[in-house]
Design a protein around this nucleic acid. Sequence first.
DNA 1: TGAAACAAGTCCTCAGACAACCTGAGAGGT
DNA 2: ACCTCTCAGGTTGTCTGAGGACTTGTTTCA
Lengths: 228, 228
Amino acid sequence: MPLGSLRPSPLVEQATEHLREQILGGQWPVGTRLPGETALATSLGVGRSTVREAVRALAEAGLVKSRQGAGVFVISTEPQQDFGARLRRAALAEVYEVRAMLEVQAARLAAHRRTDEDVAVMVAALAARRLASGGDDAAFVDADIALHAAIVAAARNPVLTDLFAEFAPVLREALVDLVDLLALRAADPATGEAAHASLVSAIASGEAEEAAGILDAELSATLTRLRT
Amino acid sequence: MPLGSLRPSPLVEQATEHLREQILGGQWPVGTRLPGETALATSLGVGRSTVREAVRALAEAGLVKSRQGAGVFVISTEPQQDFGARLRRAALAEVYEVRAMLEVQAARLAAHRRTDEDVAVMVAALAARRLASGGDDAAFVDADIALHAAIVAAARNPVLTDLFAEFAPVLREALVDLVDLLALRAADPATGEAAHASLVSAIASGEAEEAAGILDAELSATLTRLRT
DNA sequence: TGAAACAAGTCCTCAGACAACCTGAGAGGT
DNA sequence: ACCTCTCAGGTTGTCTGAGGACTTGTTTCA
């Protein structure tokens, strides 16, 4: 698993998260008036417009409400936005990292729990992926994600399956744009297929660590490419 | 199309709703690049910072995503369904299993990425947990979850932190009822504390595998109790 | 043909200015 | 003593101009 700090993010997002933590953490109870924009700006070391955008994001999230002339007030200390929405605006590398940790463990479980039907679905998805490798990017990405979804489903945990379903659309959209850049196909089409094939067969034959290892290597490689 | 010359509501909100209607109405399909800030500003008859705040609100809502240098893109044209609600309906053992796989990996990452501040927070949470072990069940569960949340936060991946936050309330509610049944305290109060303490110290000193192992053992034990 | 350099367009951030508005304190009248 | 009015200070709302950082497509050159 490649490491390294994960975030040279825009200042507005840093400011937003900083303020969000203060509110969610309970440092500023409901009804509290936040420090003024200028005060926050100097305190955070950013400009006033940056603070304004951060406050605007928190207002949209339903955490604060600003009243002209009066100030900005905390109106809720609990997150209420959908997780999927937050996923969509997160950095791809962060999403991918979590996806990888989920899926590697899922493969390990799948090796123990997969039914014959699961195996059949995976094999079919594998064939579809091979077929789609000649098609356009979108079709290939769809087929790839379908295979991975089948693997996750074989872990036989509905929560896990649901969770992966939250990730899928975000991954799909991002990967369609990146499939060439990441050399998921062009570089060495055979390895990708070979890796996926041996992954499926490892799961089918119950070799948990083998499956986890293959998938970890595959996903980690893409993740490092994603970070460059 | 200049916005109202009168000002019934702040201009930013008017602009936000105007753009939101365009997106939800389907005029701008997923993938569309919005006009530039200056173009939108003149088209809406407002200033650039007003447009920026409106876009920031839509980004927080998960409808658009801005990429520096490239533009602002539509990433969703529909409001999302709630993953948290599905979590609440799922079986506890399934939720707990996914939680375990996430957190074990999180501990591994945390050992590499934790800052000094993270360590301080974890140590404080550890002390709070020890203190709460004498209190009532709810307080103890809260303290325990707070410690685990601190560990996840130390992995420095916002997606992961958000995801754990989705799990936290579900876990809390269930564990409060089960804390005695599961013998999380009564059976052997010392081991739980010792395990958590050594977990934190392993993360603090960067021993990733050690940390992952401790946490895996701890969570797996509870999970097996949960299944009986 | 392929890679490197360039240029235009875009978002990101800051600083300053002014307007619109709210709040609390004080003056003045009842 | 109480109420009302006025006003000063502080706050958010908005606009503008400037420069930096990044992406993308084109052009140039080997």
